[in-house]
């Protein structure tokens, strides 16, 4: 899978074994039958040139419009209506009420706050750790491939499976793995799910576990792209390993770091499966105090539990606006970085 370029070039000129249009031109210039054939062929050729691009993008756009674009816009339409799950065709126009009520909806603000805090405590340690691990993996190591595969296995574990395991490890009583371990060092059993911060921490730990290795590999790929002479000249200047990391590695990785920040932020904004399955009985409220209810979970609760599809749509669009905002901020930051560089 790695030797791409050579492969491409040898495989490419495999055409032309029978399509001998140019040669035919010279030979059959005077033959009327060949002339007709040529005209037909060139007509077909022109037709092909003109329409084949559309044929190539058609399958994608067919599905894309039906299941991507249309629902996207229709969500906006539905958010302006009262729509109930039991009678989805029975829509009643309510204007912007579904949005305006979000402003005074404590559950919405609570979910927004939780999404934000869980996003921070899952993204920051995850990326910092990933950076450190990538740095270590960048050394010459025995069994480096083993390490790479091993730290990627959490990525193969689904949200649902991972959460079910973590729920058991974070059990309330002292037979939970984590409380038992804490007990060994003399800390009392923690009721992870019922505390505000503890629950958010536990939910974040699932995200951290699943994604740190993946991000480490992405950083590693970027580190391998850093030209070696940068390090060599730094070493000549007497820079220690740590100084090299700070002054060579980090600056070169800036675009990648920004990229992973964006992707992780988007992921964090949509966080859903972890908080849903972390609560007892997969209740969509995110704990008895809504202490770990995220926006994604609140949207689900409104739509498929409280059965208000219109209100749910309004939350979806608000989420989207927040993402656009994040995108704009990211764009501004990356411009700022480019200018300062």
């Amino acid at each position: 899978m790695t030797d791409i370029p050579s492969d491409t070039r040898t495989a490419a000129p495999s055409t032309g074994e029978e399509g001998a249009a140019p040669r035919a031109r010279a030979v059959a210039a005077l033959d009327p039958a060949a002339e007709r054939r040529r005209a037909r062929r060139s007509r077909r050729y022109r037709w092909d040139m003109k329409w084949s691009p559309y044929a190539l993008i058609a399958p994608f756009f067919l599905f894309f419009i039906a299941f991507g674009l249309f629902p996207l816009l229709y969500t906006g339409w539905a958010s302006l209506h009262r729509v109930e799950l039991g009678t989805p065709t029975d829509m009643e126009w309510v204007g912007l009420r579904n949005f305006s009520r979000l402003l005074e909806d404590d559950f919405f603000w609570n979910a927004l706050r939780n999404t934000f805090t869980i996003g921070i405590i899952s993204t920051v340690p995850q990326l910092v750790m990933a950076l450190g691990i990538a740095h270590l993996l960048h050394y010459r190591l025995r069994g480096s491939m083993f390490f790479r595969v091993a730290i990627l296995t959490p990525y193969a574990t689904s949200v649902a499976a991972a959460t079910l395991v973590f729920v058991l490890m974070f059990s309330r009583t002292d037979h939970g793995m984590i409380n038992w371990a804490l007990g060994l060092i003399g800390v009392d059993a923690v009721d992870w799910q019922n505390g505000d911060w503890t629950a958010q921490f536990a939910v974040s730990s699932i995200v951290i576990w699943r994604w740190t290795g993946y991000n480490a590999l992405i950083y590693l790929a970027a580190m391998q792209a850093i030209p070696n002479d940068l390090y060599e000249s730094a070493a000549l200047d007497g820079a220690s390993r740590w100084q090299q990391f700070r002054h060579v590695t980090i600056p070169s990785l800036r675009p990648t770091i920004l990229f992973t920040c964006v992707v992780s932020t988007i992921g964090a904004t949509q966080l859903f499966g972890e908080p849903l399955l972390f609560s007892q009985g997969a209740s969509p409220t995110g704990g008895s105090d809504h202490q770990f209810q995220t926006l994604g979970l609140y949207l689900y609760e409104q739509g498929w539990f409280n059965q208000h599809l219109g209100r749910s749509s309004a939350i979806a669009w608000t989420m989207f606006l927040i993402l656009v905002l994040i995108g704009l901020v990211n764009w501004a930051i990356s411009r700022w970085i480019r200018r300062s560089a």
Binding site: P71, L72, T75, L309, A316, M319, L323
Partner: peptide
Amino acid sequence: GTMMVPPQLSVVPLFMMVAE
């Protein structure tokens, strides 16, 4: 432009379509 659109944004209509 639609690459980064979250799946949440289309579930309600998709659900209605699927039911329909």
